[in-house]
Amino acid sequence: LETFPLDVLVNTAAEDLPRGVDPSRKENYLSDEDFKAVFGMTRSAFANLPLWKQQNLKKEKGLF
């Protein structure tokens, strides 16, 4: 999966995202380093959170 810089994904409308980016899964296009910096946890820890908590975190970080 291709990764993009944080500033390309945060608070970006679906139509302005790079081609192929799923707007409902912007976090998947962050590098592992950016993911950890944004969410303060690994991808696996994030995946283990309840869906509502994942969505709330994504909203807080501008990735929803």
Rank of each mutant, 00 (worst) to 15 (best):
D32N: 12
E60F: 06
K59Y: 10
F4N: 02
N28Q: 14
V8N: 04
N56M: 12
N11P: 03
Y29W: 10
A45T: 12
P18M: 02
P5S: 09
R43A: 06
L1T: 14
L30A: 00
R43K: 13
P18C: 06
V8F: 15
K26H: 02
T3Q: 07
T12V: 11
R43D: 01
K26F: 03
F39H: 00
S31N: 09
F4P: 01
L49P: 00
N56D: 14
V10Y: 07
F64G: 15
W52E: 13
L63P: 02
K61N: 14
K61D: 01
D32I: 09
L1W: 14
P23R: 02
L63H: 02
W52M: 10
T12K: 09
D34W: 03
D7N: 12
T42F: 07
D22R: 03
A13Y: 08
V38R: 01
S31C: 07
L51R: 12
T3E: 06
R19L: 15
L49V: 05
E33Y: 12
L51P: 13
P50S: 09
D32L: 13
G62C: 05
G20H: 08
S24H: 13
T3I: 11
K53N: 09
T3S: 08
N56S: 12
F4M: 07
F4R: 02
L1M: 13
G62F: 07
A13K: 13
A45C: 10
Y29H: 12
F46E: 00
D7T: 09
F46L: 03
F39N: 00
F35T: 00
E33A: 10
D22T: 02
F35W: 03
A14F: 09
D16L: 05
Q55R: 11
E33D: 13
L17N: 04
V21W: 05
L49C: 05
K53H: 13
L51S: 10
L63Y: 02
F35D: 00
F35K: 00
D16Y: 06
V21C: 04
P18Y: 03
A47Y: 12
G40V: 06
P18V: 01
T12S: 11
E2K: 14
A37H: 11
P5N: 05
S31G: 06
R43N: 05
E60P: 02
L9T: 03
N48M: 13
F64N: 14
P5V: 03
A14T: 13
N28E: 14
V21L: 07
L57G: 00
E27H: 03
S24M: 14
F4W: 13
E15L: 06
G62P: 01
K58M: 03
F4E: 02
V38E: 04
G40P: 00
K53R: 10
Y29Q: 03
P50Q: 05
F35Y: 03
T12Q: 07
E15R: 06
L49F: 08
R19I: 15
A45Q: 13
E27M: 01
S31L: 04
L17F: 08
D16Q: 05
G20W: 15
L51M: 13
V38I: 09
K53D: 14
D32S: 08
A45P: 01
S24V: 07
K58C: 04
F35R: 00
S44A: 13
N48R: 11
D22V: 03
V38Y: 05
V10Q: 13
K61I: 08
D7W: 15
S24K: 09
K59T: 12
K61T: 10
V21G: 03
N28V: 11
N28W: 12
K58N: 01
L9Q: 01
F35H: 00
V8L: 14
D16A: 07
D32H: 09
K61S: 09
A37Q: 12
N48E: 11
F46K: 00
P23M: 05
L6M: 08
F35S: 00
G62A: 04
E2M: 15
L63V: 03
F64T: 13
A37W: 12
A14W: 12
S31R: 08
N48W: 09
E2S: 11
K61Y: 12
A14L: 12
S24C: 14
G20I: 07
K53A: 13
T42Y: 06
Q55T: 13
L51V: 13
G20P: 08
K61E: 05
K58R: 07
V21H: 03
Q55E: 13
L30C: 02
L6N: 02
V8A: 09
W52S: 11
E2G: 13
N56E: 15
E60I: 10
F39P: 00
K58P: 00
K59R: 12
V21T: 04
A47D: 12
V10D: 02
S31M: 04
A45L: 12
K58Y: 03
P5H: 05
M41Y: 06
L6Y: 15
N48Y: 10
P23V: 07
K58E: 02
L51T: 12
R43P: 06
E2D: 10
L6I: 12
P23K: 06
F64S: 15
Q55I: 15
F46S: 00
N11T: 07
E27D: 03
E33R: 10
T42I: 11
L51I: 13
G20T: 08
N28M: 15
D7Y: 11
A47H: 14
E33M: 10
L51H: 12
A14N: 15
G62M: 05
T12E: 06
D22M: 02
T12C: 10
F35N: 00
D34S: 05
K61H: 14
Q54L: 01
E27I: 02
L57H: 06
G40D: 14
G62S: 05
D34M: 05
